[in-house]
Simulated scan of single mutants.
Amino acid sequence: MNNMKKIIIIALTALIFTACTNSDKEYDASGTFETTEVMISAEATGEIKQFDIKEGDVLKAGQYLGYIDTIQLKLKKEQLQSQINSVQSRTQDITAQTNPYNKQLALTQTTLNTQLHEKKRIENLLKADAATPKQLDDINAEVDATQKRLELIKSQREAQLSALNIQNDGLVKDVAPLQAQIDQINDRLAKSRIVNEVSGTVLTKYAEVNELMTEGKPLYKIADLSTLILRAYLSGNQLSAIKIGQSVKVMINDVNGKYKNYSGKIEWISNSAEFTPKTIQTKDERANLVYAVKIRVPNDGYLKIGMYADVKL
């Protein structure tokens, strides 16, 4: 009888052990949270005069943060603008310079019109024997002289116009490189303004006011923490149970030792296997090769970069 009891106890113990061994874990994979961090660097060289941020600030895209000293740039721009003004002051006013010729042309044309009218009158008188051929010869000579004078004035005006255009074109060419330098300075002035281009939270601040900056030196690091990416690893036999766009349960430990649950969505699944990271556990811990997945999780403020989390498929 005692032997029978021992057998029953052993059988029950084995059954309980087997049940416990085969019971599912509370999670299928583990991972850590990450996000895309953007390093913002200075685009100009000089002393920082204003830099209004601190770590933890939430910034908007296009938000003005401060500026790097621009005094030397402004002085150089004023010098170049003065040179441009000096060159442009030598530009000739074509209308004013050619106006005397235009007046001479108008006056000569009026004289010619009068002479032509007189010529026609004399021709009519000659037909009626009221004028002499000499009178017609005289008026023809006057018309011919006036026409030659008109052509000469036109030629002089064209020569003057050509000379003025050549001179002004040369001055314009002198202005072009100066204007190009001003455009470059304007670009550098714009880059001296520290303007945030990425919406997110300031993770690290690397520079302070009155510090000398050089182009390319980091100012701060920023990341969008409104959602985080949980990088987890699954064994090969779990891949058939997931797909991109699928919702999964993400769990983190709270202060009471219990799970705090989030809803995440799979947005990427690796196409190739890799060796299991030492700090990561999968459901089948014996698996040597695993596949990385990225799960996007909305952040309510409690999730932090580097925090561990479990995944339930």
Rank of each mutant, 00 (worst) to 15 (best):
N2W: 13
L15R: 15
A19T: 11
C20T: 13
T21F: 15
D24E: 15
D24A: 13
F33W: 03
F33M: 08
T36I: 15
A44Q: 08
F51Y: 09
E55I: 09
G56I: 03
A61R: 09
Q63I: 07
I68K: 00
D69Q: 07
D69A: 04
D69F: 05
I71P: 00
L80Y: 12
Q81P: 01
I84P: 08
N85V: 11
S89F: 08
D93G: 01
T95Q: 04
Y101Q: 01
Y101S: 02
K103Q: 13
L107H: 12
N113Q: 15
N113P: 01
L116A: 01
L125D: 15
L125W: 10
D129P: 06
T132K: 10
K134Y: 15
D138P: 09
N140H: 04
A141Q: 13
R157K: 14
R157L: 07
S162V: 06
D169Q: 06
L171G: 06
I182F: 04
D187R: 11
R188H: 13
L189S: 01
L189K: 02
T201K: 09
E208S: 15
E208W: 10
M213K: 03
T214W: 01
L219P: 04
Y220S: 09
Y220F: 15
A223N: 11
A223V: 12
D224A: 01
D224W: 13
S226E: 13
T227H: 15
L228H: 03
L230P: 03
A232I: 00
A232S: 11
K243M: 04
G245A: 06
K249S: 14
K249M: 14
V250Y: 06
N253M: 11
D254K: 04
D254Q: 01
D254H: 02
K258T: 00
S263E: 15
S263A: 13
I266K: 04
E267D: 09
I269E: 08
S270F: 07
E274I: 10
T276H: 04
K283N: 13
N288H: 12
A292H: 03
A292Q: 08
V293E: 01
I295R: 05
Y302T: 13
L303R: 05
Y308W: 07
